[in-house]
């Protein structure tokens, strides 16, 4: 196989990760390996630690025990090159977090131009082509607040993609959207999945999970309770907590 090594080596690996907020343990002994091009969906009840987990993957949150390795670099308190790692890990937030003082185009150009050192014209070209990918090239000169929630989230996805990341993290990307806008964002994510991107998504959209995920991870109380292929996960859940959760959200 011509690039078996990159497929076999995990891009992200977590070993024995524990995290506390004061006395409260948010993550308990997390062990996880994610391979290139894999699509992972993380679900679980609120407070189960799924957002905390995904935010540890680009060191927006700190873990206290265990090791997290991303693209071959270990994340820890004293690392020098956290911004290098972050440049390769795109992240999409529940609340979009677009830069309100910059236009849509400038939002997308900022990363490549300011940190990748790509010149303005090229950054602009790349931004426009990404905006085309997410199907809103005509909004390029508007400010974020002039767009609908769904459009803003698609800009946020385009902004991350402009950095040409190796991995994309999605932290409940559709939870803050009006119901009629959820599908436009999910469609964008499905396109992205089909293009071969490595994706880790915290989401409650089970239809999306069924369609896209290679693996579904169920978390509860800070632990990974169960992980399986979508088919097994939905049709044959093993753990009682998984069954209860699925009953609650699928009924």
């Amino acid at each position: 196989m011509h690039n078996s090594s990159s497929i076999e080596n995990p891009v992200i690996s977590l070993k024995g990760v524990n995290k506390w907020y004061g006395d409260f343990q948010a993550l308990k002994d997390i062990n996880l390996e994610i391979k290139l091009k894999e699509k992972i969906v993380i679900c679980g009840p609120s407070g189960s630690g799924k957002s905390t987990l995904i935010r540890c993957l680009n060191r927006l949150e700190a873990h206290q025990e265990g090791s997290i390795e991303v693209c071959g670099i270990e994340l820890h308190e004293k690392m020098q090159d956290v911004d290098i790692v972050r440049q390769d890990i795109g992240m999409v937030f529940q609340s979009f977090n677009l830069f309100p003082h910059l236009t849509v185009l400038e939002n997308c150009m900022a990363g490549p131009n300011w940190v990748r050192g790509i010149d303005k014209n090229e950054a602009k070209e790349r931004a426009l082509s990404m905006l085309k990918h997410v199907k809103i090239p005509e909004q390029a000169d508007k400010y974020p607040e002039q767009l609908s929630g769904g459009q803003q989230q698609r800009v946020a996805i385009a902004r991350s993609l402009c950095m040409q990341p190796k991995v994309m993290l999605f932290d409940e990307p559709t939870s803050a959207l009006d119901p009629e806008m959820v599908s436009e964002v999910l469609d964008t994510m499905i396109d992205l999945a089909n293009s071969g991107m490595t994706m880790i998504c915290v989401t409650h959209e089970m239809g999306f999970a069924r369609q896209v995920a290679d693996r579904i991870i169920f978390m509860d109380g800070g632990e990974i309770v169960e992980q399986n292929t979508p088919e097994e996960f939905f049709n044959n859940p093993q753990n009682e907590r998984t069954k209860t959760f699925l009953n609650q959200i699928l009924s």
Binding site: I84, Q87, I89, M91, F93, N97, F99, W114, V115, R159
Partner: peptide, 22 residues
Amino acid sequence: PKGQWEASRALGFKFGLILRKI
């Protein structure tokens, strides 16, 4: 809002750049 810092950091911006540009 804290989200502006997080979005900037997630893009790999360093402290000075975040302060100056965002």
